[in-house]
Design a binder for these strands. Structure first.
Length: 418
RNA sequence: GGGGGAGUGUCCCGAGUGGCAAAGGGAGCUGACUGUAAAUCAGCCGCCUCAUGGCUUCGCAGGUUCGAGUCCUGCCUCCCCCA
C-alpha cells in the first residue's frame, strides 16, 4: 500500500488497524496537521467493555499519541434503542437504570489508554444521551429524517441481513442508524469532530453519518473502520469458557486477563502484538520471527504488555510471576485466584465435589465434577483426585496454609483459610 | 380478514414413526501428543444420585392416552400466499 504522510495513518496502517477509509488522502492531510478529531461510540449494554472493544480503543490511543484529539462517546442514548448490526435477534431492552450503571462502570477504562483534559489533543468524553434524549420527534423528522432514504436503508447490511433471514427487525432498531448518524453531526458541531472510527460492522452506520453531515452542511466527515477480529482458527475474539474477556478488573482478574493473552494461538502472536501492545515495530518484528517453543516468549511479552496497558505494570508483572511459579516451576503461587473457607468448615471436612463445584466454581455441577474425576481432570495439590468421596481437611493445607485445586492444566484456585 | 407453514436439549444449527433424556453437527470441557499453541485421536457434554433410580426439558396453557416433542383444543410469536 502507499505510504501516508501523517504519523497517525502510517501507524494504523503498519499495525494492521485499517479495514476501510472513506477518503484516505483528505484524512491523511488532516492528520498530518494534527487536526483530526475522531470519536468511537460505545454502547452501554454491559457493565464492562471486553477485548472486542480493545481494537478501537487502541485506535483512539494512537490518534492521541500522534497529536490528534480523541472523543470517547458513551452511548447513553443509543443504548436505549439498540443496534441491530450483526445480530439476528432484537437486543433486549435495558432499563435506564441499568444503562446508567453500565455507563459509569465502563468510563474508567478509557483513562488507561487516553489522557483527558482541555488541551489541543486531550481526550473528551461525551454521552449522546445529552442530546438524543432531548430530541423532538417532529423536528427530528423534518431536520434529519428527510435526509434518509428508506430505499437505501433497506439495502444496508444490518437491515438486509435481518430481512433476508426473515428475522424480526423492529422499528426502534431500524432507527438506530439514524441516531448514530445524527451523533456524528452533533459531535462535528460541538467538538469539530471530523472522523468516526469503529469495527467493520459499523461501516454502514458511519458512512450514513458522513452523508448526513454533507446534507446538513457540516465540514467534511470521514469514516475509518478496523477489521473485525477473529483468531487464526476463526473463533470470535474474546470468548472463553467463563464468558467474555472483560476489561474491568472486578469482572476479570488481571491474572486471568494475562492468561487470556498467554494462550494466544501461534499464528496470531505477531498480529496481536501489533494491535494490542505499544511495542515498537522492530521489536515486534523480532518477536514474530521466533519459532517453535521460543514463540512462548513472545506470548509472555504479549500477555504482560497487554495486561500492563489495561491493569498497570505492577499487576502485569505479578500475573507473569504467578504464572511462572505455577506453570514453569509447578509450584503453588500465592497470588492465584483464591476462595476463603472457615476453620470450622475445614475441620468438618469439605467434600471434593463441594469444593470444586460450589466453593470455587471450577466445575458447573457435582455431576460435572464426577465426570472430570473419571477423566482425570481434577487435582488437589497437584495430585489427581481418584475418589469422589474424598474430603479435604486441615491435613491438606500446604505449609503456606492453602489448598490448591486444579481443573485441567490451566485453571487453578486456592482455598485459603479465612 | 382468508389460506398455508414454523417455533426442539435456554450457546448455535438441526433430525425426530406415540415408548425419548430425545439422532447428528458446530461450539465447549477433560485426557493423550506437545510448547499453557495449532492440528490429530479418545472420552464427556440437563440436574440430583455410589448405584438401581429419581427429577426437570421440545413456544404457552389445557386435554386424549398406561405412556406425548410426536395426537386434539385454545392462546402467543414469526414466515409465506391471497385480500
Amino acid at each position: 500500500m502507499t505510504a501516508f504522510k501523517s504519523d497517525f495513518m502510517n501507524v494504523l496502517q503498519s499495525r494492521g488497524f485499517i479495514h476501510q477509509i472513506s477518503d484516505p488522502d483528505s484524512l491523511d492531510a488532516l492528520a498530518a496537521k494534527g487536526e483530526v478529531v475522531a470519536y468511537v461510540g460505545y454502547d452501554c449494554t454491559a457493565a464492562s467493555l471486553h477485548v472486542g472493544h480493545l481494537l478501537s480503543i487502541m485506535m483512539l490511543h494512537w490518534l492521541q499519541a500522534t497529536g490528534n484529539k480523541p472523543i470517547a462517546l458513551m452511548g447513553g442514548g443509543t443504548t436505549r434503542v439498540g443496534d441491530p448490526s450483526g445480530r439476528d435477534e432484537t437486543r433486549k431492552i435495558l432499563t435506564y437504570e441499568q444503562i446508567d450503571a453500565n455507563k459509569e462502570s465502563i468510563k474508567g477504562t478509557f483513562s488507561k489508554f487516553i489522557t483527558f483534559g482541555d488541551g489541543h489533543s486531550d481526550a473528551v468524553m461525551a454521552d449522546n444521551a445529552e442530546w438524543l434524549t432531548k430530541l423532538n420527534y417532529i423536528e427530528m423528522l423534518r431536520d434529519v429524517g428527510r435526509h434518509f432514504s428508506i430505499n437505501r436503508m433497506l439495502t444496508m447490511d444490518s437491515v438486509k441481513l435481518r430481512l433476508d433471514r426473515e428475522q424480526e427487525l423492529s422499528f426502534i432498531e431500524f432507527n438506530y442508524m439514524i441516531l448514530q448518524s445524527y451523533d456524528f453531526v452533533e459531535l462535528a458541531r460541538r467538538y469539530k469532530c471530523n472522523l468516526q472510527m469503529g469495527g467493520s460492522d459499523q461501516w454502514g452506520n458511519i458512512v450514513n453519518g458522513v452523508d448526513l453531515g454533507r446534507r446538513m452542511g457540516t465540514h467534511q466527515l470521514h469514516a475509518l473502520t478496523c477489521p473485525l477480529l477473529t483468531t487464526a482458527s476463526g473463533a470470535k475474539m474474546g470468548k472463553t469458557a467463563a464468558g467474555a474477556v472483560w476489561l474491568n478488573g472486578d469482572m476479570l482478574a488481571p491474572y486471568d486477563y494475562w492468561q487470556y493473552w498467554r494462550n494466544t494461538e501461534d499464528a496470531d502472536v505477531g498480529r496481536f502484538l501489533k494491535l494490542f501492545t505499544l511495542l515498537p515495530m522492530d521489536e515486534i518484528e523480532r518477536l514474530s520471527k521466533l519459532q517453535g517453543a521460543e514463540i512462548n516468549d513472545a506470548k509472555k511479552i504479549l500477555a504482560t504488555e497487554a495486561t500492563a496497558l489495561m491493569h498497570g505494570r505492577d499487576a502485569a508483572d505479578k500475573a507473569e510471576a504467578t504464572a511462572r511459579t505455577t506453570f514453569e516451576q509447578g509450584g503453588t503461587a500465592q497470588d492465584l485466584p483464591s476462595v476463603e473457607i472457615s476453620r470450622g468448615e475445614l475441620d468438618a471436612g469439605i467434600g471434593v465435589l463441594v469444593a470444586f463445584a460450589e466453593k470455587t466454581g471450577l466445575v458447573a455441577s457435582n455431576g460435572e465434577a464426577r465426570r472430570q474425576i473419571k477423566a482425570g481432570g481434577l487435582k488437589v495439590n497437584d495430585a489427581p483426585v481418584t475418589d469422589e468421596k474424598m474430603t479435604l481437611t486441615a491435613n491438606d493445607l500446604s505449609s503456606d496454609g492453602v489448598i490448591k485445586l486444579s481443573m485441567g492444566k490451566k485453571k487453578h484456585v486456592l482455598l485459603r483459610l479465612a
